[in-house]
Simulated assay, not measured.
Amino acid sequence: MKILAIDDQQLVLLPLEKRLVALGYQVKTESNGKAGMESFESFQPDLVIVDMNMPDVSGLDVVKFIRNIKKSNTPIMVLSGNTNDEIITESFDLGINDYMKKPLSLNEICARVKRLIGVEAINSTKNFNNTIIEQRCVGVVIPCYNEEERLLSVEFLDFVDKHSGYHLCFVNDGSKDNTLEVLNKLRKGRESFITVYDCEKNGGKAEAVRLGMLHMAKKTDLDYIGFLDADLSTDLADFDDLVSTIENSDYKIVSGSRISRMGADITKESARKVISLTINFIIRKILQMEFKDTQCGAKIFHKDVIEIAFNNKFLTKWLFDVEIFIRIRKHFGLDRAKQILCEKPLKRWIHADGSKLSMKDSIKIMGQLGQIAWVLR
């Protein structure tokens, strides 16, 4: 049996297509409504799966085309994050057979497909990973410098396999070891979900993050883009919580906070903690905002503020996070900036061995704070 899947987000289509093909169905995918309508005529599917929220030609337009113009009774399943009651009601009035609200698992989607058009393959009873089809698609930039020994490849791969809405971009910052080789092996077989951006020369974490964020901003199917440390001192589950926060709010930036709270598993060397608290006090005075932890290496951004935050090079090597907040404050004004910036406590954070920020570097940061304050005064 043939299935036509139409969705403007590739991170949704790819795992859906892979699973349905594994079950024995013949699958064709289209990334926009117009192409979907053309394929309906040429492909003649036994089932159409369509998203509602697509630009130009919406999923509702596709349903109207199939039912009203082509006068076809081909089963239609809607897979969408649109929960508008009027849209859902109109869809059923037009004759759709099912309406599935994201997020939901691939297992559930396939069960609904089998119920609607029957079981196609001998693999129909095979157990698959319960991958989640997300409502939003997220890009994550991970700067890497000499991470050959520390890169937790298994954790990254497991996360990508279970969370379809993520695209990871590893930025090799001119590493001297075999980091680039490790990253290319990590990407193999998952090219649609993992990108390796190679910087031939080491430019520092700030520049690696900046280039990675601008690169990911070119991908049209991403809703949010963030960055995360390669050592996973903030784990991927916590990062997913940051994404959920920005997805269900009007915030433009959500930043992780390592400040301890009840039930949190947060560890850090005491000397570094004292210096960090001193630095944070100065940062709050510069920003005129009560941020408890600007330097956490886990942040997520709404796509429409990426250019504001990352278009220009940063002044400093380690304090680019502060510069980001200053750029947002200068662009939107202090009052508005306070409304669109959010600091969310992390459940877990561990200072990983091998950190490239030494005690001496921490002291140098004091001077860089003075540089920022002077240049951006």
Rank of each mutant, 00 (worst) to 15 (best):
residue 164 S to C: 09
residue 214 L to I: 13
residue 130 N to S: 14
residue 140 V to Y: 02
residue 149 E to K: 15
residue 199 C to E: 15
residue 142 I to T: 01
residue 190 R to D: 13
residue 218 K to H: 11
residue 197 Y to H: 13
residue 157 L to G: 00
residue 150 R to I: 10
residue 209 V to H: 06
residue 192 S to Y: 11
residue 219 K to H: 04
residue 166 Y to K: 03
residue 160 V to Y: 00
residue 191 E to L: 15
residue 139 G to C: 05
residue 205 K to D: 08
residue 224 Y to K: 08
residue 203 G to Q: 08
residue 217 A to Q: 05
residue 173 D to P: 14
residue 195 T to M: 07
residue 217 A to H: 10
residue 234 T to Y: 04
residue 164 S to Y: 00
residue 219 K to G: 02
residue 130 N to W: 09
residue 243 V to S: 07
residue 138 V to H: 05
residue 153 S to R: 13
residue 165 G to R: 02
residue 167 H to P: 09
residue 215 H to E: 14
residue 131 T to L: 12
residue 191 E to H: 04
residue 207 E to Q: 13
residue 239 F to T: 05
residue 164 S to A: 15
residue 158 D to G: 01
residue 132 I to L: 15
residue 157 L to M: 09
residue 224 Y to C: 05
residue 185 K to F: 11
residue 242 L to P: 09
residue 186 L to M: 15
residue 127 N to R: 14
residue 213 M to Q: 03
residue 212 G to Y: 04
residue 176 K to Q: 10
residue 163 H to M: 03
residue 174 G to V: 10
residue 139 G to K: 06
residue 194 I to D: 00
residue 218 K to Q: 14
residue 128 F to S: 14
residue 142 I to F: 09
residue 164 S to Q: 07
residue 167 H to N: 06
residue 225 I to E: 06
residue 179 T to L: 13
residue 213 M to S: 03
residue 175 S to C: 14
